[in-house]
């Protein structure tokens, strides 16, 4: 766990570093801001110790911006990601499945809330992030722009999409920014439940009727490549990765995580008795990594750029919910204000 888990304790430590480092600023002859210099020194020391940066700590603007971008994109992905699954809540084929699916989609709203809160500690507001999302100015995980056309998609999303998310997010529990890392701990616990329920759906279908089995295989076929692409572009085409790793936000490269994920799928698909739609999957004994067939990165970029099958629909649904809910949010604020006025008048 983080050594500086309390904002106050790390806030106090800035002061001591600040006074200790003040002489160094003069030596440079550039008269940099001593607070900034001390802050940078403290920040570097925290990263060197693999400890946590906390909200009140000084941090480089680029680090802050990068985190806001990453955490808000992550939050948006949770919120937009509710839609493809909510699509099947009212049609879930058994009450037990309906109950599990509802709980899962509800968890995702909760994840969105923790993550927006984590991003808010960096000085942005949820309203700003939500406005950027509904204005189409923010990104979210491109995979949620694919449609969920059969019930088996609930299984494939849980098993593969949430499985990929877990591979990505478990290392993020150790991210250098405290609120993000801690949010990830809780998110990962719930994601592992999500993955198991997805696997269970596919297992039931794979052991069901011929039609159910075909439905399961079809879903695995459709979600395989998009789930592999969730890890982001190959390492040699991933501009932000290097800096993110230097800041101890990201711990493993896109390709490392993708390879690990493929290895997991290879074993688990055997239990399902289904196949992966990729005849080039193999374990490379030399590099000790799993390799897979080529992925269509042009398609990935198209979807990311807003030209996927459901981009417009997903954004429109979020925008509608947001706009149709405006009068409710305004009412809550107005009521709160009136109550406060009453209390003041009574006091």
């Amino acid at each position: 766990m983080a050594q500086n888990s309390e904002p106050n304790s790390s806030g106090a430590s800035i002061k001591s570093v600040s006074s200790a480092a003040s002489g160094k600023a003069v030596l440079d002859g550039l008269t940099p801001d001593p607070v900034q210099l001390a802050g940078q020194e403290h920040f570097d020391a925290v990263l060197a110790k693999d400890s946590r940066v906390e909200p009140k700590d000084w941090m480089p603007d680029a680090y802050r911006r990068s985190l806001v971008r990453q955490i808000s994109q992550h939050a948006h992905s949770e919120i937009i990601g509710m839609q493809p699954e909510a699509n099947w809540i009212t049609r879930a084929p058994s009450l037990k499945r309906k109950s599990i699916l509802m709980a899962k989609v509800q968890d995702e709203a909760g994840h969105g809330l923790y993550l927006y809160s984590a991003a808010e500690t960096l000085g942005t507001t949820r309203d700003e992030m939500m406005d950027a999302l509904v204005a189409g100015k923010a990104r979210y995980s491109s995979i949620f722009n694919y449609p969920t056309v059969t019930w088996a998609d609930m299984g494939a999303i849980g098993w593969m999409v949430d499985g990929a998310a877990i591979c990505n997010q478990v290392p993020l529990c150790r991210a250098s920014y405290g609120p993000y890392g801690r949010a990830m701990v809780r998110v990962c616990k719930e994601e592992s439940f999500h993955q198991r329920q997805g696997f269970e759906i596919l297992l039931e279908l794979a052991n069901g009727t011929a039609e159910q089995r075909a439905m399961a295989q079809d879903a695995v076929n459709r979600w395989y490549a998009p789930s592999l692409m969730m890890f982001g572009p190959p390492d040699d085409d991933s501009p932000n990765s290097k800096q993110s790793m230097a800041w101890n936000i990201k711990r493993f490269s896109n390709d490392e995580l993708r390879s690990r994920f493929v290895g997991m799928l290879v074993e688990q698909v055997k239990v399902l008795g289904l196949t992966l739609p990729d005849d080039q999957v193999r374990f490379n004994e030399e590099s000790k990594t799993w390799e897979h067939g080529p992925l269509d990165w042009d398609e990935f970029k198209e979807v990311l750029a807003g030209r996927g099958p459901c981009n417009a629909q997903r954004l429109e649904r979020r925008r509608t919910a947001h706009e149709e809910g405006a009068w409710v949010r305004e009412a809550a604020v107005a009521y709160h204000q009136k109550q406060q006025d009453k209390q003041k008048a009574a006091a």
Binding site: M82, M102, V105, Q106, A109, L113, A321, G325, V328
Partner: peptide, 22 residues
Amino acid sequence: LGHWISRGPELEEDVALGNIAL
């Protein structure tokens, strides 16, 4: 109520109405 999940006026209401539905 299940229909409200992902359509609530606030994320908190997606969670609350989802909880009640559950």
